[in-house]
């Protein structure tokens, strides 16, 4: 039993010089050809791809940073614009109010002026009317007085002449 394997030829354990020679030759061929034609270019391509991915990632990161930067800027601008708008609105409102107030004041003033003008007119008219009335009533009184005097003086020519001069004097006024 001990030489089970050696009863029949266990030839694989005996290194054959021919097979050794061919193995070396074929392996060196594989090593040389694949090293030159395959493994070096593949390694190079893989390395290049890794670098490409790295740069792409870096660029993406940069772009993202820039984007967020831009966004922040935008936001800022937006906020500013909003402030500006509200400020403008406020100003407009103020201006409107001011204009309205001014207009109101002006209108009031105008009204006042118109009123006072009217009052003055009325006063003037009343004054005129009063003057007129005075004149009228003066005339009336004179006439009455004249009639009375004429009747009384008809008898007295001297007095009559005197009154006539008086009346003449008044009329001259």
């Amino acid at each position: 039993m001990t030489n089970l394997f050696f009863l029949t030829d266990f030839s694989v354990i005996k290194p054959d010089p021919g097979l050794t020679f061919w193995t070396l030759l074929i392996f060196l061929l594989v090593w040389g050809v694949l090293g030159k034609l395959a493994f070096k270019p593949i390694q190079g391509a893989l390395r290049k791809r890794e670098q490409d991915i790295q740069t792409a990632l870096d660029e993406a990161k940069k772009a993202r940073d820039e984007m967020s930067h831009l966004k922040a800027k935008n936001e800022e601008l937006l906020v500013e614009a909003r402030e500006e708008r509200s400020k403008m609105l406020k100003e407009a409102k103020e201006m409107k109010e001011a204009i309205v107030n001014e207009a109101k004041a002006k209108a009031k003033e105008e009204a006042q002026r118109v009123l006072s003008n009217a009052k003055q007119e009325i006063d003037n008219l009343r004054m005129a009317a009063m003057v007129d009335l005075q004149n009228q009533s003066g005339m009336l009184a004179i006439q009455v007085a004249e009639k009375i005097l004429q009747r009384e003086l008809k008898g007295d020519p001297e007095r009559e002449a005197y009154v006539k001069t008086l009346v003449e004097g008044i009329k001259l006024n």
């Binding site: 354990i13 005996k14 290194p15 054959d16 097979l19 050794t20 193995t23 070396l24 392996f27």
Partner: peptide, 9 residues
């Protein structure tokens, strides 16, 4: 599984 081959390698 032949010693000559593994020997060379």
């Amino acid at each position: 599984g032949n010693l000559a081959v593994t020997l060379s390698l």
